[in-house]
């Protein structure tokens, strides 16, 4: 694994389309960006997140995949005013590219932790070698963290190896499993039930609750997978 600074911030054009804003309970407001599931949209979510960070009435901001959950400290008297203010911030938000780190993850492709590789070959019509090559040649961005401590949702998976999540999750997928879920990839951080498809294994510990910065990944980081071993 190695870290280095990625490219500096850049600007992407604005759009006038409103975000979709809905409630989850009384204090949480979900802001969903209109448009595609792509990097420019996510950059605008990062910008929105940054703009809202300093607002005193906000307790917590949780970036998702082209969306942002804003949790207020108090239940607002006039939720319409909150929605209006969030919509204003969305309108003003210009895309920023986060100056993330570069993270390289050594992977053993195939082998005992690649239980879903044959199914992916069947689905894609590719050989196992081609699947592995396409996966490790990709460059991925951490869009957001969530679901489990330190788990990074990685965007940038080649459409040839997209694979839907399982309808029945695997019950005991190992921590470190390198997985594909729909158009995303990621490394499992906990052993347990998992609906993503496993094609390899990485030793890297993605989360340490006792560390000053518990999660290895952060939104904006660039991730590459280095094939350390291929067991096919």
């Amino acid at each position: 694994m190695s870290f280095q600074q990625a490219a500096p911030a850049s600007i992407v054009p604005d759009t006038d389309e409103l975000a979709r804003i809905s409630f989850i309970g009384t204090r949480a407001f979900l802001i969903e960006a209109p448009g595609a599931f792509d990097l420019p949209t996510q950059r605008r979510i990062w910008a929105l997140s940054h703009a809202l960070e300093t607002r005193p009435e906000i307790a917590e901001i949780v970036p998702g995949m082209t969306n942002l959950l804003v949790i207020l400290k108090e239940t607002p008297e006039t939720p319409e005013a909150v929605v209006h203010a969030l919509q204003e911030e969305w309108r003003r938000a210009r895309g920023v590219d986060l100056a993330g780190r570069e993270i390289e993850i050594a992977v053993t492709y195939g082998g005992e932790h690649a239980g879903d590789l044959p199914a992916l070959c069947d689905l894609s019509g590719l050989s196992d070698r081609e699947v592995v090559r396409i996966h490790h040649e990709g460059t991925y961005r951490v869009f957001a963290l969530g679901s489990a401590p330190g788990f990074g949702y990685l965007h940038g998976l080649d459409p040839r190896i997209h694979m839907p999540r399982k309808t029945v999750p695997s019950l005991h997928m190992a921590r470190g499993s390198v997985t594909i879920g729909g158009m995303q990839t990621g490394v499992a951080v906990l052993t347990g039930p998992n609906g993503w498809n496993s094609i390899g294994f990485a030793e890297l510990q993605m989360f340490d609750p006792m560390a000053a910065a518990p999660a290895v990944m952060a939104p904006g980081d660039t991730v590459r997978f280095r094939p350390e071993r291929i067991e096919l």
Binding site: G25, M65, N67, T167
Partner: peptide, 15 residues
């Protein structure tokens, strides 16, 4: 659906 943050109390409806 795209993955998004949730809080306790959210009522989700699986398939």
């Amino acid at each position: 659906m795209r993955s998004h943050g949730v809080v306790p109390g959210v009522i989700q409806v699986p398939p």
